[in-house]
Structures are given as structure tokens and as C-alpha cells.
Simulated assay, not measured.
Amino acid sequence: MVDRPSILLPLRVLEGDSIPEGVPELLANAHVVLLGYHVVPDQTATEQARDQFGDQATRRLDDFTAILEHAGATVESQLVFTHDGQTTIDRVVGEHDCLAVLVANATRPVESILVGVRGVAGVDRFVRLVSGLFATIDVNVTLYHVAGADETDADVQTLLDGIATRLSDEGISPDAIDVQISRGGTPREMIVDASDTYDAIVMGESDPSVATFLFGMTADQVAKQFLGPVFVIQHGELDDTEETETE
């Protein structure tokens, strides 16, 4: 049996975030690290915010946990009051060795996913995520690569065929796996353009901070334009930057 992949689901628990429609079912085979966080102003102590809002935030986090568990996921929840949401997300990813962060947009029942492959870096994590989530589900997987000027189609085909073989070894039906190679434009632009007919995206992030994706321009270019859920694979090791926060 394929191990459940650990997925970080961050929610601004006191700012109206909720679990969108279709996301619990999407995560049914995952181990969800559910991060409920609240960013407080620099001049406010995190302990003070927890004393004031902790019970309310905990109740919401418990409700979200129940929704995910009902769909089939295993859940590990954590509540954090922090001065820096980006740093908190990065830290929790490292502490729990999460394969990916989910940008949780609403989705219909998942029938097809687009996997944006950048190169050989992080392939193990891509295989573990896709097979762990979808090996027992009837879903079509497209391995998609935007080739650079120094890459031949044959080299890229070899890369994608190798990933397809590994996925089939982990339980994804070979008949459900397709490969596509594109040229021209940036990978983010091309992924957005190619994503129209897909229900979810899996992609890597070159920046060492996953939170850059969540809060920065990449989120605008992919998650907002695509409008569906995006799994962001974490590739690099995070640094040991500490911050003052309460959990």
C-alpha cells in the first residue's frame, strides 16, 4: 500500500478561510497537516492574541479537521498565532516534511491532473505525491514539461517516460498517463495556458520558500488564473530561521 503523502493545508483561521468544495475528497488519501494560523500586528504580542481568540480559532480548526477526516484523510492540526505568515508556513513544512503545500481552490470531482515537471529535481516527491493521492482513483495524469532551448525532445521524452514508468510501478494505470512537451514562453505561463481542461495542478517551485508561491506573484499567475487546487511541491531544504509565535 502506498504511504499517505503529507500535504500542508494552511488556512487563515480567523480571516474567513474555509475548506473549499471538493478539497476534502481531493485529500481523501493524504495525511493533512492542517495549519490554522492568524497573523497579528507587530505591536501585539502573539500570546495576547491567543488569549483573546484562541478558543474561537480552535473551534474552527476542529470543525475543519472533522470535515477532512470524514472524507478519509488523516489529519494533524496545528494552531499558530504569528507575526509572519510566510515564515510560519515554511517552518511547518520543514517540521512535518510535507511533500507539498495545497493552494486550496474549489474543485469538481477530480478526473484529470496536470503535473508540471521542471526537471530531474524533486522527481521522487512528484512520484510519491501523485501515486499516494491518485493510485486508487480513476484519474488521468498528464506529465507536462516546457522544454528549454538546450533540451531536445528526445531527452525530455526520456525524462517523462521514466517518471511515467515510476508512477505505473506505484499503482497508476499506464493507460491513464500521458506526456506532453511544449516550447516557448515561461513554464508558469505555459502551465496556465495548458490547464484549462484539468481539475488540479501539481507543480514544483524553484524558490526555496513555498510561501513565496502562496503570497507572491506565482500565486497570481497560477492559482488565481487556474482557479482550481494547486499542489506546490517543496524541493529544497529550508533554513532554520526562527520567529516568535505561539502554538
Rank of each mutant, 00 (worst) to 15 (best):
D3K: 15
R4V: 12
P5M: 09
S6R: 15
I7Y: 06
L8K: 01
L11P: 07
L14P: 07
E15Q: 15
D17L: 09
I19R: 04
G22F: 03
G22V: 10
V23F: 05
V23A: 05
P24W: 03
V32L: 12
L34T: 07
G36A: 10
D42H: 11
A45N: 06
A45M: 11
Q48H: 08
Q48E: 13
R50C: 00
D51E: 15
D55I: 13
R59K: 14
R60Y: 09
D62G: 02
D63C: 00
F64W: 10
I67W: 00
A71T: 09
A73H: 08
A73E: 08
V75D: 06
S77L: 05
V80M: 06
T82W: 04
T82R: 03
H83D: 08
R91H: 13
V93Q: 05
G94W: 10
H96G: 02
H96P: 01
C98M: 09
L99D: 00
V103R: 02
A106H: 13
T107S: 12
T107D: 06
T107L: 11
R108S: 14
V110L: 02
I113K: 02
L114D: 01
V117H: 03
V123N: 05
D124C: 03
R128L: 11
L129F: 06
V130T: 13
A135H: 14
A135N: 09
T136G: 09
I137W: 04
D138V: 09
T142E: 14
T142G: 04
L143Y: 04
Y144H: 15
H145C: 06
V146Y: 00
A147F: 01
E151L: 08
A154M: 10
A154Q: 14
D155K: 12
V156S: 04
V156N: 02
Q157M: 12
L159C: 00
L160S: 06
L160G: 02
G162W: 11
A164M: 10
T165Y: 11
R166Q: 15
L167Q: 03
L167T: 06
D169V: 11
D169Y: 07
D169S: 12
G171Q: 08
A176R: 13
I177N: 01
I177K: 02
D178G: 05
Q180D: 14
G184L: 09
R188A: 04
E189K: 05
V192W: 00
V192D: 07
S195H: 05
S195F: 00
S195E: 03
Y198H: 14
Y198V: 09
D199T: 09
G204F: 02
G204Q: 09
S206D: 05
D207L: 07
P208R: 06
V210F: 00
F213V: 10
F213K: 03
M217K: 10
T218L: 11
A219M: 10
Q221T: 10
A223N: 08
F226R: 05
P229N: 06
F231G: 01
Q234N: 15
L238A: 13
L238D: 08
L238E: 12
T241S: 13
T244P: 00
T244N: 09
E245C: 10
